[in-house]
Design a protein around this nucleic acid. Sequence first.
DNA 1: CTGAAAGCGCTTACAG
DNA 2: CTGAAAGCGCTTACAG
Lengths: 327, 327
Amino acid sequence: MKDVAARAQVGLKTVSRVVNGEPGVTADTVQRVQEAIAALGFRRNDSARLLRKGRTASIGLVLEDLADPFYGPMSRAVEETARAHGTLLIHGSSAALPERERELVLALCARRVDGLIVVPAGDDHRYLEPEMAAGLATVFVDRPPGRIDADAVLTANFAGARAGVAHLIAHGHRRIAFVGDRPGIHTAAERLRGYHAAMAEAGLAVDASWVALGPTGPDRVGPAVRALLEGPDPVTALFTANNRITVTAVRVLAGRGLPVALVGFDDFELADVVSPAVTVVAQDAAELGRAAARLLFGRLEGTARAPERLELPTRLIVRGSGETPPS
Amino acid sequence: MKDVAARAQVGLKTVSRVVNGEPGVTADTVQRVQEAIAALGFRRNDSARLLRKGRTASIGLVLEDLADPFYGPMSRAVEETARAHGTLLIHGSSAALPERERELVLALCARRVDGLIVVPAGDDHRYLEPEMAAGLATVFVDRPPGRIDADAVLTANFAGARAGVAHLIAHGHRRIAFVGDRPGIHTAAERLRGYHAAMAEAGLAVDASWVALGPTGPDRVGPAVRALLEGPDPVTALFTANNRITVTAVRVLAGRGLPVALVGFDDFELADVVSPAVTVVAQDAAELGRAAARLLFGRLEGTARAPERLELPTRLIVRGSGETPPS
DNA sequence: CTGAAAGCGCTTACAG
DNA sequence: CTGAAAGCGCTTACAG
């Protein structure tokens, strides 16, 4: 910019005016500056600009794994909202490691992102308190923050799971298994609670062996599902508590002839094409992202207000697998 | 930092030394400074730091759509490599609009990202020439850059498609359709070329009505596939040229009883579970991202070298749908 | 071991 | 209409 000013024989401020299209510069001067800009190939350095302005026009999004199909639409929705606000999006995957979540979040804070959207991996977010006290807008999504009060956008996990399990019960099932994520994860715990509620409301006792919790990879889920379907007194229906688990269950069921009822939490691509098509409790990942971004920019632009908690409804999509009667 | 210095009664440089763990400060001084840091809740502003350092420790990734399952693993791979280099990742979706790609890329340039990875939406990247001449490291991925010379990591689209179509021919098919993306897209054109090559090598004439090109949404692909399978002299096999198209084709085929052979370009989740399981020409999206990131950081750390072009091989995964004989 | 001065590339607040 | 000075929050190069 200094070079441009020198070449156009004007002051720095005049170059700044031209670059930013501010009024109050003679057409003649504007042209001289523009010629110098073109000749020197000058481009404004937005990082320097934003340092002076006191914001970064960027927000951070920390989630579990960008490669998980659940997070793609969510990220995209956040990105679109950010774009509408002239803001860039910095991404980070925590790989479900609390330590990595913290590291990423603090790196983003050090960059002074204007706001932060976090899908928690850990269950203690007190490390964010100083940042939030200093004015960092933060919204948690998919899972609530741990040990601090902050904006959160969640899915109705309890109600959704309860409705899914009740659906299986309504179709005559009594021996229903729950295959879920590790119980330390909020969504997993809520969905499990929904399962227990539906069973209790129908007056059905739950055998401890019907509940299989753990990592969502096929290595754990495959054997767990097979175990539930074997033995002297197998379950007649499965409630799978997230899309990674459902997909593995579908794969296992496809390998056996026996009809087993299945309802999954989360919709997934081709759920309508596999045979039988999979009945799911769908949540809207994109809307989760949109709502979180809306809350975030609301907070960035508005006045201070108390933390808000939004809960988005689920939708039962009936496709066939959940309506199989008990064998 | 000024406040910390004042409170600890030291100079700015000493605070800087403590914050960065540089040697040459008395234990006593270190402690005074650390107390001041804790009392004031000071956190270094990395944006300011990096401005002074002349880099931003961030790279930009511009792709078509973060919500497309093809890009999730690719992004994640780029992110992991960036992480290993202490670099953050800024994401942008072009929505396949050349104008939006340009806008995003230039916004990232204005932020002075250290490097850029681009999945092109447009076919003219001369707008990047001044930036690249000024030292911006840039790698194109999935599709080559248009009208400039630059690093690129591509899939062997031509060879992969040729092998996929040859596979159908080897299983007795003569009337094979090609359902692909708009021909302006490089990958689409290459795959079409592979189809024509395989047909020509087998001495088979291609009826113009067998080639259906256009947008990859179900609105276009669904009717196109149905049209190919109806009429007096329908095709007996389909080659679908990307995962969005294949998924729609699978959906259409599931709705009819007749066996039609199918080979798709790109693998996708549950390809092994739908019935029949789908034979695909798989490409490695994660490796595409990893290779691109490796090239980028190689360029950032190394000396200048001529632009490089990598081509990753595809893998034919035989699952059943591609081995259906002609009806 | 320690710190004052200059600078990264911009904008703000002000004066002429 | 125009520009010199100060400042955003740091680091670099240097001197003591």
